[in-house]
Design a protein around this nucleic acid. Structure first.
Length: 426
DNA sequence: TCTGGGGTCCTAGGACCC
DNA sequence: TCTGGGGTCCTAGGACCC
């Protein structure tokens, strides 16, 4: 048996964790740049605020229902997530951190410790609640996909109180008949449309479809999904650390930017972030892509879509490197080759790929190997910045007067990670 | 009439996830 | 005025090898 622990309305719950006055009222959290709604309290859902709605379209609703709005505070959410995960780790040793707000558990070998899984779920739920103030829902079933299904009903049917155990074939087949195929894990909008065209509407119908048809139309992923619904586990717990295969940093500007100088400074800043992530996981990049684009929603004065521009440049580096200084030279050259005068840009982004372990030295006959001094420089900058704060030491080419930063108008304090933001108890 | 067989590696595109 | 960011996996097709 597996379990899936999912935090309810996670980002909203994080905001509520340190601000109880938000309980019982509509609350939403916005995406980066205060763009779209990405988390909603139940009260916000019940006044018809949809996932992904742009903030500016919601101003009336927000006023009418006195909705509390927050910019996303990933420092806070990341820290509370780590606390939730650590709490789960107290009870079972096989925990897969699947996303910031979800974890899979494997109960294999724990039957003697926890003969009553429902009781265990109750304990997990109340302990997480007490230690972090985060409400969670728990689904338990013979496969991870069925856990997702169980969790869906745990959350939505009040009588379950956030916990649903699917441990008999009868119960499973009964519940799959009520489960919309479009809600399945691995079925997105494209596959949902395809399945609808083939008169498959429930998870039960999908699971009964012929294997070769599923394989043909939805590749082996679809077939695994069907097996999992039939109770045959195809997805095991993944608890090992797996280094990322690509690292991307591409925040939007807070306003549209026309000039190459500002774009360059932003790119160096984004690249510094990306290279820090690269070094943190012990990798070096062999390939770098720089891209720019304008705002695709923008309209010109006559209401027609404005002229758009997108371009990217991918560079094979002479040798894999994790040095910010070294990567910067290539990045700026790439930007110059894609930048076109005459557009107002929304974004410049960088993708590092072709990642290899950092100690990997590929000897090349005609080019110099990586410069050891650059590696030492990056490591030293990382240590200083870790101790004294982000960007205390940085490249001058990142600029001094930052005018492009994204908007975050409603940011809550970093309650758990910044001394000056600690709550004061009077 | 008839044009080999068996591989590897890389990339782009399409699907998905949170 | 204002519309997020960061990832993964699979497949087909092309280029190449012997």
């Amino acid at each position: 048996m597996f379990g899936l622990v999912d935090c309810n309305n996670f980002y909203v719950s994080c905001e509520r964790s340190f601000n109880p006055s938000l309980e019982g009222r509509p609350v939403v959290v916005l995406s980066n740049n205060d763009g779209c709604v990405i988390a909603r309290s139940n009260e916000a859902k019940s006044v018809e605020i949809k996932m992904g709605t742009p903030y500016f379209q919601l101003k009336d609703t927000i006023k009418e229902h006195d909705v509390r709005v927050f910019s996303s505070n990933y420092t806070l959410y990341g820290d509370l997530s780590a606390r939730v995960m650590a709490t789960l780790g107290r009870f079972v040793d096989q925990v897969e951190i699947y996303s910031i707000d979800e974890a899979f558990l494997d109960f294999e070998g724990f039957a003697h410790l926890y003969p009553d899984l429902h009781q265990l779920a109750l304990t997990l739920q109340s302990t997480v609640r007490q230690w972090t103030r985060i409400p969670v829902s728990i689904g338990m079933a013979p496969t991870k996909t069925l856990c997702k299904v169980a969790n869906y009903f745990a959350k939505r049917q009040a009588e379950n109180r956030g916990i649903l155990l699917l441990d008999s074939p009868e119960r499973i087949s009964e519940i799959l008949q009520e489960f919309p195929v479009s809600e399945l894990w691995g079925v997105g909008s494209r596959y949902a449309a395809l399945l609808r065209r083939n008169a498959i509407r429930t998870a039960a119908q999908f699971s009964n479809a012929p294997d070769d048809w599923i394989n043909r139309t939805m590749t082996v992923n679809g077939l695994r999904l069907a097996y999992e619904l039939r109770g045959v586990p195809c997805k095991m717990l993944e608890t090992e650390f797996a280094p990322k295969k690509a690292i991307c940093t591409s925040p939007s500007f807070g306003r549209l930017i026309p000039d190459l100088k500002t774009m360059s400074e932003a790119l160096v800043t984004h690249l510094s972030r990306a290279a820090e992530k690269l070094r943190r996981q012990g990798s070096a990049a062999g390939t770098m892509t720089v891209f720019v684009h304008t705002n695709r929603f923008k309209r010109s004065a006559n209401g027609q879509p404005a002229r758009q521009y997108y371009n990217s440049r991918t560079i094979q580096l002479p040798h894999p490197t994790a040095s910010t200084a070294e990567l910067t030279g290539y990045a700026l050259a790439a930007l110059q080759s894609v930048y076109q005068f005459g557009y107002a840009y929304q974004k410049v982004g960088v993708i590092l790929s072709g990642l290899v372990p950092i100690d990997h030295h590929q000897t090349h006959y005609f080019t110099k190997g990586p410069d050891e001094r650059l590696a030492v420089l990056s490591a030293t900058m990382d240590r200083l910045n870790h101790r004294f704060g982000r960007d205390k030491v940085r490249l001058a080419s990142a600029g001094y007067d930052v005018t492009w930063h994204h908007r975050q108008q409603w940011m809550s304090p970093a309650y758990t990670t910044k001394w000056t933001d600690l709550l004061q108890v009077k």
